[in-house]
Amino acid sequence: MSPKFKNSFLILQKLHQLSGGVAEHHYADIFEVGRELRMNELATLDTFIYLQRERLVKWGTLGGVASITQQGIREIEGAMAGKRTAYFPQDIADTV
């Protein structure tokens, strides 16, 4: 599995958990999220930039604070349910 898919899934899953499934409800420090997921800072930042460009996360403030968007919630909930989504292969939750 591509590290891009894995990292994107893990980060969106964590933001979904922190937000309680509510878009733009909880802002998290992206580097703290990355550390919790055992990702280095470069991989964390690259993944967040990718997710932001795809409009799955939204930057909150300068300094690395972000939240999950409604589109991000739809994607991660579909992926966690074992469905193929626009960004994740089917059953990614079982392989990460």
Results as ranks from 00 to 15, higher is better:
Trp59Tyr: 14
Arg74Asp: 15
Val22Ala: 10
Asp94Thr: 04
Gly21Glu: 13
Met39Val: 01
Ser19His: 05
Ile30Leu: 15
Gly60Met: 06
Leu62Ser: 12
Ala66Gly: 02
Thr85Cys: 06
Gly20Met: 03
Gln17Trp: 10
Tyr50His: 13
Ser19Asn: 12
Met80Phe: 03
Ala66Gln: 02
Leu56Lys: 02
Gly20Cys: 06
Leu62Asn: 10
Arg74His: 13
His26Ala: 13
Gly21Cys: 10
Ala28Tyr: 00
Asn40Ala: 09
Leu51Asp: 11
Arg35His: 12
Ala23Glu: 06
Ala66Glu: 02
Lys58Asp: 10
Ser67Arg: 01
Arg55Gly: 04
Phe31Tyr: 15
Arg84Thr: 05
Val22Trp: 01
Trp59Asp: 04
Ala43Leu: 08
Ala43His: 08
Asp46Cys: 09
Gln70Met: 12
Gln70Asp: 15
Glu41Met: 14
Val33Asp: 10
Arg38Val: 09
Asp91Thr: 04
Glu32Ser: 13
Gln90Ala: 14
Glu54Asn: 13
Lys83Thr: 01
Lys58Pro: 01
Trp59Arg: 12
Gly64Thr: 07
Thr47Gln: 11
Val57Arg: 00
Glu54Ser: 11
Glu75Ala: 12
Tyr50Ala: 14
Leu56Ser: 05
Leu18Val: 03
Arg35Gly: 05
Glu54Arg: 11
Leu42Glu: 15
Phe88Pro: 01
Ala81Glu: 12
Gly78Arg: 02
Lys58Tyr: 09
Ala66Val: 04
Gln90Met: 09
Ile92His: 02
Ile30Cys: 07
Ala93Asn: 11
Gly72Pro: 02
Asn40Pro: 05
Ala81Gly: 07
Gln70Ile: 05
Thr44Phe: 08
Glu77Val: 03
Thr85Tyr: 05
Val22Glu: 07
Tyr27Ile: 04
Val57Ala: 07
Gly64Tyr: 09
Leu37Glu: 10
Thr47Arg: 10
Gln90Phe: 00
His16Tyr: 11
Leu51Tyr: 09
Glu24Pro: 00
Ala79Asn: 07
Leu18Pro: 00
Asp91Met: 11
Gln17Pro: 00
Trp59Gly: 11
Asp46Tyr: 07
Pro89Tyr: 08
Asp91Tyr: 10
Glu75Tyr: 05
Asn40Tyr: 14
Arg84Lys: 13
Ala28Thr: 04
Ala28Ile: 01
Ile49Gly: 02
Thr44Glu: 07
